[in-house]
């Protein structure tokens, strides 16, 4: 059954939103979401890679031999990741310093490879673009949401601006790694509660 382009886009926002529904790509989800800003930056970088790799994989899907498709996907993805890394160094250097190693690690992010294999390799260019955009935006929103909770509770600030005044004792646990797991788990739980009704 062919879905419309809008449907391909929208499914990435709720039905298949990456960290919560597919529970994929958890490495950056847990590691970089200390602040909203980091989360959005990471999400946008991943979105760019996702869209570009989806388009290219979809365009080349009749040329790429099935036996070596994974190797081809990785070359395509790695190229775009390196492009993003260079662009971030050139234009948003402070953000690049904060995200550091997690930018090159987009190469092995299973969302990107997963979408290339499960969707772009079997579908035409336009639905693949919509799919990449939808999943990418969903990923960015998820990272921003986790970052929002962690930053507000963990540091008592948002975008570096203090919210509760000097009396607030930051719950620093939330910006540590275990806090990320607990935050992700609770949000998953809420989403399931809402989604199952």
């Amino acid at each position: 059954m062919a879905k419309s382009i809008t449907q391909e886009f929208v499914k990435g926002l709720w039905a298949e939103i990456p960290p919560f529904r597919l529970v994929l790509g958890l490495c950056p989800v847990l590691a970089v979401t200390k602040t909203v800003e980091n989360g959005i930056g990471m999400g946008l970088a991943t979105t760019f890679v996702l869209i570009c790799s989806n388009i290219l994989v979809s365009m080349l899907r009749s040329i790429i031999p099935t036996k070596i498709r994974i190797a081809c996907f990785i070359i395509i993805i790695a190229t775009f990741v390196t492009v993003v890394e260079l662009l971030m160094q050139a234009f948003t250097y402070p953000l690049f310093l904060k995200l550091g190693i997690f930018i090159p690690l987009i190469v092995v992010n299973c969302i990107v490879l997963g979408r290339a294999e499960a969707f772009a390799f079997k579908n035409p260019v336009i639905p693949s673009t919509a799919d990449g955009l939808g999943i990418g935006v969903g990923f960015t929103l998820s990272l921003a949401a986790i970052g929002l909770v962690r930053e507000i509770i963990g540091t008592g600030a948002l975008f570096g601006v203090s919210l509760f005044g000097a009396d607030y004792q930051p719950f620093a646990f939330m910006v540590e790694a275990p806090g990320a797991f607990i935050c992700l788990g609770l949000m998953l739980c809420i989403m399931n509660l809402v989604g199952n009704k």
Binding site: L60, I63, I64, P65, I68, A71, C72, I75, I76, A78, T79, T82, V83, L86, L87, Q89, A90, F91, Y93
Partner: peptide
Amino acid sequence: VLTILSAFSGGILASVKQNTSEKIEFQ
């Protein structure tokens, strides 16, 4: 296919690197 793809990717990376290296150094 792999050869052409790799060559293509190498070409893109080289041109991006060349165009950003000055900016990166400045940053």
